[in-house]
Design a protein around this nucleic acid. Sequence first.
RNA 1: GGGCGUGUAGCUCAGUGGUUAGAGCAGGGCACUCAUAAUGCCUUGGUCGGGGGUUCAAGUCCCUCCACGCCUACCA
Length: 509
Amino acid sequence: MSNKAYITTPIYYPSGKPHIGSAYTSVACDVYARAMRLDGRDTKFLTGTDEHGLKLQRAAENEGLTPQQYVDKMSEQFRALEDIVTLSNDDFIRTTEPRHEAAATAMWNKLNDAGFIYKDTYAGWYSVPDESYYTEEELVDGKSPDSGHPVEWVEEESYYFKLSAFGDKLLAYYEKHPEFIQPESRKNEVIAFVKSGLRDLSISRSTFNWGVPVPNDDKHVMYVWVDALTNYLSALGWPESADWADYFQEAVHVIGKDILKFHAIYWPAMLMAAEVPLPKQVYAHGFWVADGQKMSKSKGNVIDPVEMTETFGIDQLRYYMLRDVSFGQDGDFSKDRLISRINTDLSNDLGNLFQRVLSMVFKNCEGQTPDLGELTSEDQEFLNHVGPEFVDEYLAHIEKLEFHKALDVVWNVVRAANKYMDNQQPWSLKKENPERMGQVLRVLMEAFCPISLLVEPFLPNSAPKLQAQVGFKGKTFADLRKGTPLLETGAKLDKPEGVFMRYMKEEAA
RNA sequence: GGGCGUGUAGCUCAGUGGUUAGAGCAGGGCACUCAUAAUGCCUUGGUCGGGGGUUCAAGUCCCUCCACGCCUACCA
Protein backbone atom coordinates (compact mmCIF):
# COMPACT_ATOMS: atom_id res chain seq x y z
CA MET A 1 0.00 0.00 0.00
CA SER A 2 1.13 3.51 -0.76
CA ASN A 3 2.39 5.58 2.11
CA LYS A 4 0.66 8.63 0.67
CA ALA A 5 -2.81 9.95 1.36
CA TYR A 6 -4.62 12.71 -0.48
CA ILE A 7 -8.05 14.03 0.41
CA THR A 8 -9.94 16.94 -1.07
CA THR A 9 -13.02 19.01 -0.44
CA PRO A 10 -14.73 20.56 -3.44
CA ILE A 11 -13.52 24.05 -4.15
CA TYR A 12 -16.26 26.21 -2.76
CA TYR A 13 -17.99 28.88 -4.81
CA PRO A 14 -17.50 32.03 -2.73
CA SER A 15 -20.72 33.83 -3.52
CA GLY A 16 -21.72 33.99 0.13
CA LYS A 17 -20.66 32.83 3.57
CA PRO A 18 -19.73 29.21 4.17
CA HIS A 19 -22.73 27.31 5.46
CA ILE A 20 -23.00 24.17 7.49
CA GLY A 21 -22.65 21.97 4.41
CA SER A 22 -19.22 23.34 3.57
CA ALA A 23 -18.17 23.02 7.18
CA TYR A 24 -19.37 19.42 7.21
CA THR A 25 -17.45 18.42 4.10
CA SER A 26 -14.33 20.09 5.36
CA VAL A 27 -14.53 18.55 8.81
CA ALA A 28 -14.97 15.08 7.35
CA CYS A 29 -11.88 15.53 5.19
CA ASP A 30 -10.01 16.93 8.15
CA VAL A 31 -10.76 13.90 10.30
CA TYR A 32 -9.52 11.61 7.57
CA ALA A 33 -6.37 13.66 7.06
CA ARG A 34 -5.56 13.80 10.78
CA ALA A 35 -6.09 10.08 11.17
CA MET A 36 -3.85 9.32 8.19
CA ARG A 37 -1.10 11.53 9.60
CA LEU A 38 -1.33 9.83 12.99
CA ASP A 39 -0.99 6.56 11.14
CA GLY A 40 2.25 7.79 9.64
CA ARG A 41 0.99 8.42 6.12
CA ASP A 42 2.45 11.25 4.06
CA THR A 43 -0.79 13.21 3.80
CA LYS A 44 -2.11 16.09 1.75
CA PHE A 45 -5.44 17.65 2.56
CA LEU A 46 -6.65 20.19 0.03
CA THR A 47 -9.48 22.70 0.04
CA GLY A 48 -10.01 25.99 -1.75
CA THR A 49 -12.29 28.23 -3.76
CA ASP A 50 -13.67 28.24 -7.29
CA GLU A 51 -13.40 31.89 -8.27
CA HIS A 52 -14.43 32.24 -11.88
CA GLY A 53 -17.71 32.66 -13.67
CA LEU A 54 -20.37 35.13 -14.59
CA LYS A 55 -22.03 35.24 -11.18
CA LEU A 56 -18.89 36.43 -9.44
CA GLN A 57 -18.08 38.86 -12.24
CA ARG A 58 -21.50 40.47 -11.86
CA ALA A 59 -21.35 40.48 -8.08
CA ALA A 60 -18.05 42.32 -8.31
CA GLU A 61 -19.54 44.91 -10.62
CA ASN A 62 -22.41 45.47 -8.23
CA GLU A 63 -19.97 46.31 -5.48
CA GLY A 64 -17.82 48.44 -7.76
CA LEU A 65 -14.85 46.12 -7.42
CA THR A 66 -12.76 44.33 -9.97
CA PRO A 67 -13.49 40.62 -10.07
CA GLN A 68 -10.09 39.92 -8.57
CA GLN A 69 -10.65 42.32 -5.68
CA TYR A 70 -14.03 40.78 -5.09
CA VAL A 71 -12.86 37.17 -5.02
CA ASP A 72 -9.89 38.10 -2.85
CA LYS A 73 -12.40 39.32 -0.32
CA MET A 74 -14.87 36.47 -0.65
CA SER A 75 -12.25 33.76 -0.67
CA GLU A 76 -11.11 34.91 2.77
CA GLN A 77 -14.47 33.93 4.21
CA PHE A 78 -13.82 30.36 3.18
CA ARG A 79 -10.25 30.40 4.32
CA ALA A 80 -11.72 31.38 7.68
CA LEU A 81 -13.29 27.93 7.91
CA GLU A 82 -9.84 26.76 8.92
CA ASP A 83 -10.30 28.59 12.22
CA ILE A 84 -14.04 28.20 12.52
CA VAL A 85 -13.93 24.40 12.63
CA THR A 86 -10.18 23.80 13.10
CA LEU A 87 -8.98 22.46 9.78
CA SER A 88 -5.53 21.05 9.16
CA ASN A 89 -5.45 21.52 5.40
CA ASP A 90 -2.00 21.54 3.87
CA ASP A 91 -2.97 23.82 1.05
CA PHE A 92 -5.70 26.18 -0.07
CA ILE A 93 -6.08 26.37 -3.82
CA ARG A 94 -7.68 29.32 -5.58
CA THR A 95 -8.57 29.02 -9.23
CA THR A 96 -7.33 32.55 -9.83
CA GLU A 97 -3.79 31.61 -8.84
CA PRO A 98 -1.17 31.36 -11.60
CA ARG A 99 -0.32 27.78 -10.60
CA HIS A 100 -3.91 26.78 -11.21
CA GLU A 101 -4.33 28.69 -14.45
CA ALA A 102 -1.18 26.99 -15.71
CA ALA A 103 -2.58 23.56 -14.87
CA ALA A 104 -5.98 24.32 -16.38
CA THR A 105 -4.27 25.48 -19.55
CA ALA A 106 -2.17 22.34 -19.60
CA MET A 107 -5.30 20.23 -19.17
CA TRP A 108 -6.98 22.01 -22.05
CA ASN A 109 -3.96 21.50 -24.28
CA LYS A 110 -3.76 17.80 -23.48
CA LEU A 111 -7.43 17.29 -24.25
CA ASN A 112 -7.04 19.28 -27.45
CA ASP A 113 -3.85 17.53 -28.56
CA ALA A 114 -5.50 14.18 -28.02
CA GLY A 115 -8.32 15.27 -30.31
CA PHE A 116 -11.11 15.43 -27.73
CA ILE A 117 -11.95 19.09 -28.17
CA TYR A 118 -13.82 20.58 -31.11
CA LYS A 119 -15.56 23.83 -31.88
CA ASP A 120 -19.24 23.98 -32.57
CA THR A 121 -22.28 26.07 -31.95
CA TYR A 122 -23.91 25.87 -28.56
CA ALA A 123 -27.61 26.33 -28.96
CA GLY A 124 -30.52 26.16 -26.65
CA TRP A 125 -33.48 27.89 -25.14
CA TYR A 126 -32.18 30.54 -22.80
CA SER A 127 -34.04 32.23 -20.00
CA VAL A 128 -32.45 35.50 -18.99
CA PRO A 129 -33.96 35.73 -15.48
CA ASP A 130 -32.91 32.17 -14.72
CA GLU A 131 -29.52 32.55 -16.39
CA SER A 132 -30.02 29.08 -17.66
CA TYR A 133 -30.33 27.03 -20.81
CA TYR A 134 -33.01 24.42 -21.31
CA THR A 135 -33.56 21.66 -23.81
CA GLU A 136 -36.71 21.39 -25.86
CA GLU A 137 -38.03 18.60 -23.63
CA GLU A 138 -37.48 20.54 -20.44
CA LEU A 139 -39.66 23.47 -21.43
CA VAL A 140 -43.10 23.71 -19.94
CA ASP A 141 -45.56 25.19 -22.42
CA GLY A 142 -42.59 26.66 -24.23
CA LYS A 143 -41.47 28.51 -21.12
CA SER A 144 -38.88 28.13 -18.40
CA PRO A 145 -39.65 25.13 -16.20
CA ASP A 146 -38.14 26.93 -13.23
CA SER A 147 -39.80 30.30 -13.34
CA GLY A 148 -42.29 30.24 -16.21
CA HIS A 149 -40.48 33.11 -17.93
CA PRO A 150 -40.33 33.15 -21.70
CA VAL A 151 -37.22 31.71 -23.30
CA GLU A 152 -35.30 32.70 -26.40
CA TRP A 153 -33.33 30.61 -28.85
CA VAL A 154 -29.68 31.47 -28.45
CA GLU A 155 -26.72 30.23 -30.43
CA GLU A 156 -23.20 30.73 -29.23
CA GLU A 157 -19.90 29.45 -30.52
CA SER A 158 -18.39 27.06 -28.01
CA TYR A 159 -15.72 24.45 -27.61
CA TYR A 160 -16.87 20.96 -26.81
CA PHE A 161 -15.34 18.03 -25.00
CA LYS A 162 -16.09 14.64 -26.57
CA LEU A 163 -17.67 13.19 -23.46
CA SER A 164 -19.79 10.91 -25.64
CA ALA A 165 -16.70 8.86 -26.49
CA PHE A 166 -16.27 7.72 -22.90
CA GLY A 167 -19.50 6.01 -21.92
CA ASP A 168 -18.28 2.45 -22.31
CA LYS A 169 -14.87 3.18 -20.88
CA LEU A 170 -16.44 4.72 -17.80
CA LEU A 171 -18.80 1.80 -17.29
CA ALA A 172 -15.90 -0.62 -17.61
CA TYR A 173 -13.94 1.39 -15.10
CA TYR A 174 -16.78 1.49 -12.56
CA GLU A 175 -17.10 -2.26 -12.85
CA LYS A 176 -13.41 -2.89 -12.40
CA HIS A 177 -13.14 -0.43 -9.51
CA PRO A 178 -16.21 -0.89 -7.34
CA GLU A 179 -14.80 1.49 -4.73
CA PHE A 180 -14.48 4.37 -7.18
CA ILE A 181 -17.93 5.81 -6.53
CA GLN A 182 -19.36 5.61 -3.04
CA PRO A 183 -21.76 5.12 -1.44
CA GLU A 184 -23.27 2.27 -3.41
CA SER A 185 -26.59 3.94 -4.11
CA ARG A 186 -24.82 6.89 -5.70
CA LYS A 187 -22.83 4.58 -7.88
CA ASN A 188 -26.05 3.04 -9.15
CA GLU A 189 -27.32 6.48 -10.03
CA VAL A 190 -24.22 7.28 -12.00
CA ILE A 191 -24.21 3.99 -13.86
CA ALA A 192 -27.84 4.42 -14.84
CA PHE A 193 -27.06 7.88 -16.05
CA VAL A 194 -24.07 6.86 -18.14
CA LYS A 195 -25.98 3.94 -19.61
CA SER A 196 -28.65 6.30 -20.82
CA GLY A 197 -26.05 7.89 -23.09
CA LEU A 198 -23.62 10.76 -22.71
CA ARG A 199 -23.71 13.98 -24.68
CA ASP A 200 -20.68 16.10 -25.44
CA LEU A 201 -19.94 18.83 -22.97
CA SER A 202 -19.73 22.53 -23.71
CA ILE A 203 -16.52 23.68 -22.04
CA SER A 204 -16.09 27.30 -23.04
CA ARG A 205 -18.00 30.56 -22.97
CA SER A 206 -17.62 33.74 -24.95
CA THR A 207 -20.36 35.76 -23.25
CA PHE A 208 -18.16 36.76 -20.32
CA ASN A 209 -14.44 36.87 -19.73
CA TRP A 210 -13.87 36.17 -16.03
CA GLY A 211 -12.13 32.85 -16.44
CA VAL A 212 -9.05 31.10 -17.73
CA PRO A 213 -8.57 32.03 -21.40
CA VAL A 214 -8.80 29.23 -23.93
CA PRO A 215 -5.34 28.70 -25.45
CA ASN A 216 -5.04 30.39 -28.84
CA ASP A 217 -8.55 31.82 -28.70
CA ASP A 218 -8.92 34.80 -26.37
CA LYS A 219 -12.56 35.26 -27.20
CA HIS A 220 -13.32 32.23 -25.05
CA VAL A 221 -12.78 31.41 -21.43
CA MET A 222 -12.92 27.89 -20.04
CA TYR A 223 -16.27 27.04 -18.60
CA VAL A 224 -16.41 25.62 -15.12
CA TRP A 225 -15.51 21.94 -15.64
CA VAL A 226 -12.05 22.03 -17.14
CA ASP A 227 -11.23 24.94 -14.91
CA ALA A 228 -12.67 23.89 -11.56
CA LEU A 229 -12.09 20.15 -11.57
CA THR A 230 -8.46 20.53 -12.51
CA ASN A 231 -7.79 22.15 -9.13
CA TYR A 232 -7.22 18.71 -7.67
CA LEU A 233 -4.20 18.38 -9.94
CA SER A 234 -2.94 21.94 -9.93
CA ALA A 235 -2.41 21.85 -6.17
CA LEU A 236 -0.07 18.89 -6.69
CA GLY A 237 2.03 20.84 -9.19
CA TRP A 238 0.72 18.85 -12.12
CA PRO A 239 1.95 18.32 -14.80
CA GLU A 240 5.50 19.42 -13.94
CA SER A 241 6.11 18.18 -10.42
CA ALA A 242 7.87 14.88 -9.92
CA ASP A 243 5.54 13.38 -7.34
CA TRP A 244 2.02 14.47 -8.28
CA ALA A 245 1.04 10.98 -9.35
CA ASP A 246 2.04 9.47 -6.01
CA TYR A 247 -0.59 11.55 -4.29
CA PHE A 248 -3.19 11.68 -7.00
CA GLN A 249 -3.59 7.93 -7.25
CA GLU A 250 -4.55 8.00 -3.56
CA ALA A 251 -6.96 10.89 -4.04
CA VAL A 252 -10.28 10.74 -2.24
CA HIS A 253 -12.66 13.43 -3.47
CA VAL A 254 -15.28 14.15 -0.85
CA ILE A 255 -18.22 16.02 -2.32
CA GLY A 256 -21.85 16.84 -1.74
CA LYS A 257 -24.29 14.68 -3.62
CA ASP A 258 -25.25 17.63 -5.81
CA ILE A 259 -21.98 17.61 -7.72
CA LEU A 260 -21.68 13.87 -8.11
CA LYS A 261 -21.97 13.75 -11.89
CA PHE A 262 -19.20 16.21 -12.42
CA HIS A 263 -16.84 14.19 -10.27
CA ALA A 264 -17.93 10.69 -11.19
CA ILE A 265 -18.45 11.19 -14.93
CA TYR A 266 -16.96 14.36 -16.41
CA TRP A 267 -13.80 14.34 -14.31
CA PRO A 268 -12.75 10.73 -14.92
CA ALA A 269 -13.59 11.11 -18.62
CA MET A 270 -11.38 14.18 -18.84
CA LEU A 271 -8.61 12.36 -17.04
CA MET A 272 -8.89 9.38 -19.36
CA ALA A 273 -8.71 11.73 -22.33
CA ALA A 274 -5.65 13.43 -20.88
CA GLU A 275 -4.15 10.06 -19.97
CA VAL A 276 -3.96 10.85 -16.29
CA PRO A 277 -4.53 7.90 -13.92
CA LEU A 278 -7.80 8.26 -12.04
CA PRO A 279 -8.21 9.16 -8.37
CA LYS A 280 -8.99 6.42 -5.90
CA GLN A 281 -12.46 7.45 -4.91
CA VAL A 282 -15.28 9.92 -5.23
CA TYR A 283 -17.45 9.94 -2.12
CA ALA A 284 -20.75 11.81 -2.19
CA HIS A 285 -22.08 12.58 1.26
CA GLY A 286 -25.60 13.64 2.15
CA PHE A 287 -27.14 16.97 2.95
CA TRP A 288 -28.28 18.41 6.21
CA VAL A 289 -31.84 19.42 6.79
CA ALA A 290 -32.89 21.37 9.87
CA ASP A 291 -35.42 19.77 12.21
CA GLY A 292 -36.79 17.76 9.32
CA GLN A 293 -37.11 20.68 6.94
CA LYS A 294 -34.96 21.79 4.07
CA MET A 295 -32.76 24.70 5.04
CA SER A 296 -33.57 27.91 3.28
CA LYS A 297 -33.11 31.56 3.92
CA SER A 298 -36.81 32.25 3.56
CA LYS A 299 -37.67 29.72 6.26
CA GLY A 300 -34.99 31.22 8.46
CA ASN A 301 -33.84 27.79 9.57
CA VAL A 302 -30.35 27.95 8.14
CA ILE A 303 -27.72 26.54 10.48
CA ASP A 304 -24.75 28.86 10.78
CA PRO A 305 -21.54 27.04 11.62
CA VAL A 306 -20.10 30.09 13.37
CA GLU A 307 -23.08 30.40 15.66
CA MET A 308 -22.99 26.67 16.41
CA THR A 309 -19.32 26.63 17.35
CA GLU A 310 -19.67 29.74 19.48
CA THR A 311 -22.61 28.29 21.37
CA PHE A 312 -21.56 24.67 21.67
CA GLY A 313 -17.88 24.48 20.87
CA ILE A 314 -15.91 23.45 17.83
CA ASP A 315 -15.12 19.88 18.83
CA GLN A 316 -18.68 19.41 20.00
CA LEU A 317 -20.04 20.41 16.60
CA ARG A 318 -17.50 18.26 14.78
CA TYR A 319 -18.35 15.29 16.94
CA TYR A 320 -22.08 15.68 16.51
CA MET A 321 -21.96 16.00 12.75
CA LEU A 322 -19.88 12.88 12.25
CA ARG A 323 -21.40 10.79 15.03
CA ASP A 324 -25.09 11.30 14.67
CA VAL A 325 -25.62 10.31 11.06
CA SER A 326 -23.81 7.86 8.89
CA PHE A 327 -21.68 9.61 6.30
CA GLY A 328 -23.35 9.41 2.92
CA GLN A 329 -26.87 9.74 4.22
CA ASP A 330 -28.83 12.91 4.72
CA GLY A 331 -28.83 14.18 8.26
CA ASP A 332 -31.33 16.06 10.33
CA PHE A 333 -29.59 18.83 12.22
CA SER A 334 -31.26 19.14 15.57
CA LYS A 335 -29.97 21.19 18.46
CA ASP A 336 -31.60 18.80 20.88
CA ARG A 337 -29.66 15.91 19.44
CA LEU A 338 -26.49 17.98 19.43
CA ILE A 339 -26.97 18.78 23.12
CA SER A 340 -27.78 15.17 23.85
CA ARG A 341 -24.57 14.04 22.16
CA ILE A 342 -22.55 16.61 24.06
CA ASN A 343 -23.97 15.69 27.44
CA THR A 344 -24.26 11.95 27.01
CA ASP A 345 -21.28 10.96 24.90
CA LEU A 346 -18.74 13.67 25.55
CA SER A 347 -19.48 14.74 29.12
CA ASN A 348 -20.97 11.71 30.83
CA ASP A 349 -19.17 8.89 29.07
CA LEU A 350 -15.81 10.26 28.02
CA GLY A 351 -15.14 13.42 30.01
CA ASN A 352 -16.41 12.06 33.30
CA LEU A 353 -14.45 8.84 32.81
CA PHE A 354 -11.18 10.74 32.63
CA GLN A 355 -12.19 12.99 35.47
CA ARG A 356 -13.19 10.23 37.90
CA VAL A 357 -10.01 8.27 37.30
CA LEU A 358 -7.56 11.14 37.23
CA SER A 359 -8.97 12.90 40.24
CA MET A 360 -8.55 9.71 42.24
CA VAL A 361 -4.98 9.47 41.06
CA PHE A 362 -4.36 13.07 41.96
CA LYS A 363 -5.84 12.77 45.43
CA ASN A 364 -4.67 9.30 46.38
CA CYS A 365 -1.51 8.59 44.45
CA GLU A 366 0.42 11.75 45.20
CA GLY A 367 -0.37 13.05 41.75
CA GLN A 368 1.88 10.52 40.10
CA THR A 369 1.26 7.78 37.60
CA PRO A 370 0.89 4.64 39.75
CA ASP A 371 2.72 1.40 39.11
CA LEU A 372 1.24 -1.16 36.75
CA GLY A 373 2.55 -4.23 38.55
CA GLU A 374 1.42 -7.79 37.93
CA LEU A 375 -1.87 -7.74 36.03
CA THR A 376 -4.85 -9.82 37.10
CA SER A 377 -6.89 -11.72 34.55
CA GLU A 378 -9.58 -9.07 34.86
CA ASP A 379 -7.07 -6.32 34.09
CA GLN A 380 -5.81 -8.25 31.12
CA GLU A 381 -9.30 -8.91 29.86
CA PHE A 382 -10.10 -5.23 29.97
CA LEU A 383 -6.85 -4.19 28.33
CA ASN A 384 -7.56 -6.59 25.48
CA HIS A 385 -10.16 -4.07 24.36
CA VAL A 386 -7.47 -1.52 23.62
CA GLY A 387 -4.88 -3.62 21.85
CA PRO A 388 -3.67 -3.25 18.25
CA GLU A 389 -6.98 -4.61 16.91
CA PHE A 390 -8.66 -1.59 18.44
CA VAL A 391 -6.59 0.74 16.28
CA ASP A 392 -7.00 -1.47 13.21
CA GLU A 393 -10.74 -1.65 13.48
CA TYR A 394 -10.98 2.08 13.98
CA LEU A 395 -8.70 2.80 11.02
CA ALA A 396 -10.59 0.45 8.74
CA HIS A 397 -13.70 2.51 9.35
CA ILE A 398 -11.91 5.81 8.84
CA GLU A 399 -10.50 4.65 5.52
CA LYS A 400 -14.00 3.80 4.36
CA LEU A 401 -15.18 7.19 5.66
CA GLU A 402 -17.47 5.40 8.11
CA PHE A 403 -16.92 8.01 10.76
CA HIS A 404 -19.87 7.12 12.96
CA LYS A 405 -18.68 3.52 13.08
CA ALA A 406 -15.15 4.55 14.00
CA LEU A 407 -16.59 6.56 16.88
CA ASP A 408 -18.83 3.71 17.90
CA VAL A 409 -15.76 1.49 18.18
CA VAL A 410 -14.11 4.01 20.49
CA TRP A 411 -17.18 4.49 22.63
CA ASN A 412 -17.57 0.77 23.17
CA VAL A 413 -14.20 0.94 24.85
CA VAL A 414 -15.16 4.02 26.83
CA ARG A 415 -18.17 2.13 28.19
CA ALA A 416 -16.03 -0.89 28.94
CA ALA A 417 -13.70 1.36 30.92
CA ASN A 418 -16.52 2.78 33.01
CA LYS A 419 -17.70 -0.75 33.60
CA TYR A 420 -14.26 -1.99 34.58
CA MET A 421 -13.91 0.80 37.09
CA ASP A 422 -17.28 0.03 38.65
CA ASN A 423 -16.39 -3.63 38.93
CA GLN A 424 -13.00 -2.97 40.51
CA GLN A 425 -14.27 -0.19 42.81
CA PRO A 426 -10.92 1.47 43.43
CA TRP A 427 -12.59 3.77 45.97
CA SER A 428 -13.25 0.82 48.29
CA LEU A 429 -9.66 -0.34 47.89
CA LYS A 430 -8.39 2.98 49.15
CA LYS A 431 -7.93 1.84 52.74
CA GLU A 432 -7.40 -1.90 52.68
CA ASN A 433 -5.33 -2.21 49.52
CA PRO A 434 -3.98 1.09 48.18
CA GLU A 435 -1.55 -0.72 45.90
CA ARG A 436 -4.31 -2.54 44.08
CA MET A 437 -6.21 0.73 43.88
CA GLY A 438 -3.26 2.32 42.16
CA GLN A 439 -2.96 -0.60 39.82
CA VAL A 440 -6.60 -0.37 38.75
CA LEU A 441 -6.24 3.34 38.12
CA ARG A 442 -3.09 2.74 36.12
CA VAL A 443 -4.80 0.11 33.98
CA LEU A 444 -7.44 2.70 33.21
CA MET A 445 -4.81 5.29 32.41
CA GLU A 446 -3.19 2.87 29.99
CA ALA A 447 -6.53 2.60 28.22
CA PHE A 448 -6.76 6.38 28.14
CA CYS A 449 -3.80 6.51 25.78
CA PRO A 450 -5.45 4.86 22.79
CA ILE A 451 -8.78 6.45 23.61
CA SER A 452 -7.42 9.97 23.73
CA LEU A 453 -5.39 9.45 20.57
CA LEU A 454 -8.14 7.88 18.51
CA VAL A 455 -10.53 10.70 19.26
CA GLU A 456 -7.95 13.31 18.29
CA PRO A 457 -8.89 13.46 14.59
CA PHE A 458 -12.45 14.25 15.62
CA LEU A 459 -11.67 16.43 18.62
CA PRO A 460 -8.43 18.19 17.69
CA ASN A 461 -8.79 20.88 20.35
CA SER A 462 -9.86 18.71 23.27
CA ALA A 463 -7.95 15.50 22.72
CA PRO A 464 -4.56 17.09 23.41
CA LYS A 465 -5.93 18.26 26.76
CA LEU A 466 -6.98 14.72 27.60
CA GLN A 467 -3.58 13.43 26.55
CA ALA A 468 -1.78 16.02 28.61
CA GLN A 469 -3.75 15.04 31.71
CA VAL A 470 -2.64 11.46 31.31
CA GLY A 471 0.92 12.41 30.44
CA PHE A 472 0.67 10.95 26.96
CA LYS A 473 1.90 13.42 24.37
CA GLY A 474 3.03 13.55 20.77
CA LYS A 475 2.38 9.88 20.12
CA THR A 476 1.16 8.12 16.99
CA PHE A 477 -0.77 4.98 16.15
CA ALA A 478 2.52 3.17 15.77
CA ASP A 479 3.17 3.78 19.47
CA LEU A 480 -0.23 2.36 20.34
CA ARG A 481 0.52 -0.85 18.49
CA LYS A 482 3.47 -1.47 20.78
CA GLY A 483 0.97 -2.12 23.54
CA THR A 484 1.06 -1.73 27.31
CA PRO A 485 2.74 -0.06 29.08
CA LEU A 486 2.46 3.25 27.29
CA LEU A 487 3.02 5.41 30.33
CA GLU A 488 5.89 5.97 32.68
CA THR A 489 5.39 5.07 36.33
CA GLY A 490 5.91 7.97 38.68
CA ALA A 491 5.27 10.69 36.11
CA LYS A 492 3.98 13.86 37.74
CA LEU A 493 0.40 14.75 36.88
CA ASP A 494 -1.45 18.03 37.13
CA LYS A 495 -4.71 18.42 38.90
CA PRO A 496 -7.30 17.26 36.37
CA GLU A 497 -9.86 19.66 35.01
CA GLY A 498 -13.01 18.70 33.18
CA VAL A 499 -12.59 18.84 29.44
CA PHE A 500 -16.19 18.37 28.29
CA MET A 501 -18.66 20.30 30.35
CA ARG A 502 -22.34 19.54 30.18
CA TYR A 503 -24.39 21.98 28.16
CA MET A 504 -27.18 23.53 30.16
CA LYS A 505 -30.06 25.14 28.35
CA GLU A 506 -30.33 28.81 29.02
CA GLU A 507 -33.83 29.09 30.34
CA ALA A 508 -35.52 30.78 33.21
CA ALA A 509 -35.63 28.19 35.95
C1' G B 1 -43.30 8.55 -16.98
C1' G B 2 -38.51 5.83 -16.23
C1' G B 3 -34.56 4.63 -12.70
C1' C B 4 -32.31 4.16 -7.75
C1' G B 5 -33.18 3.87 -2.62
C1' U B 6 -35.61 3.98 2.18
C1' G B 7 -39.69 2.32 5.47
C1' U B 8 -37.41 -2.46 12.15
C1' A B 9 -38.90 -0.11 19.87
C1' G B 10 -40.92 7.16 21.44
C1' C B 11 -35.91 8.90 18.74
C1' U B 12 -31.28 7.50 15.71
C1' C B 13 -30.15 3.12 13.60
C1' A B 14 -27.74 -2.63 13.44
C1' G B 15 -29.57 -6.94 11.68
C1' U B 16 -24.49 -12.94 5.40
C1' G B 17 -33.01 -17.27 5.27
C1' G B 18 -32.72 -20.55 10.47
C1' U B 19 -32.90 -20.74 17.97
C1' U B 20 -37.50 -16.39 22.30
C1' A B 21 -35.58 -9.51 16.42
C1' G B 22 -30.74 -6.23 18.75
C1' A B 23 -27.72 -1.46 20.27
C1' G B 24 -27.41 3.63 21.85
C1' C B 25 -30.54 7.57 23.51
C1' A B 26 -35.16 8.67 25.96
C1' G B 27 -38.74 6.30 30.06
C1' G B 28 -39.08 3.15 34.84
C1' G B 29 -36.59 0.53 39.09
C1' C B 30 -32.18 -0.78 41.94
C1' A B 31 -26.98 -0.30 43.38
C1' C B 32 -22.80 2.76 44.20
C1' U B 33 -20.50 7.42 45.80
C1' C B 34 -14.28 7.90 42.81
C1' A B 35 -16.50 11.54 39.32
C1' U B 36 -19.05 16.76 35.39
C1' A B 37 -26.68 14.97 39.86
C1' A B 38 -21.83 11.50 36.62
C1' U B 39 -21.25 5.49 36.45
C1' G B 40 -22.98 0.28 36.73
C1' C B 41 -26.95 -3.36 36.85
C1' C B 42 -32.04 -4.64 35.81
C1' U B 43 -36.34 -3.22 33.15
C1' U B 44 -40.81 -1.13 29.99
C1' G B 45 -41.37 -0.88 24.79
C1' G B 46 -41.73 -3.67 18.20
C1' U B 47 -48.35 -7.54 14.25
C1' C B 48 -39.91 -5.70 11.40
C1' G B 49 -45.11 0.04 6.12
C1' G B 50 -49.87 -3.13 4.10
C1' G B 51 -51.22 -7.53 1.36
C1' G B 52 -49.99 -11.91 -1.32
C1' G B 53 -46.30 -15.76 -2.66
C1' U B 54 -41.67 -19.19 -2.59
C1' U B 55 -39.57 -22.25 1.51
C1' C B 56 -39.28 -27.21 6.52
C1' A B 57 -37.97 -21.91 7.87
C1' A B 58 -38.64 -14.67 5.67
C1' G B 59 -37.19 -8.49 8.86
C1' U B 60 -33.95 -11.19 5.37
C1' C B 61 -35.97 -13.91 -1.45
C1' C B 62 -40.21 -12.88 -5.33
C1' C B 63 -44.82 -10.05 -6.71
C1' U B 64 -48.03 -6.10 -5.62
C1' C B 65 -49.81 -1.81 -3.14
C1' C B 66 -48.88 2.58 0.15
C1' A B 67 -45.61 6.53 2.07
C1' C B 68 -41.21 9.24 1.74
C1' G B 69 -36.37 10.68 -0.48
C1' C B 70 -33.00 11.11 -4.53
C1' C B 71 -31.53 10.94 -9.99
C1' U B 72 -33.45 11.91 -14.96
C1' A B 73 -27.59 16.36 -19.11
C1' C B 74 -24.46 21.24 -18.07
C1' C B 75 -27.33 26.25 -10.63
C1' A B 76 -22.08 25.13 -5.12
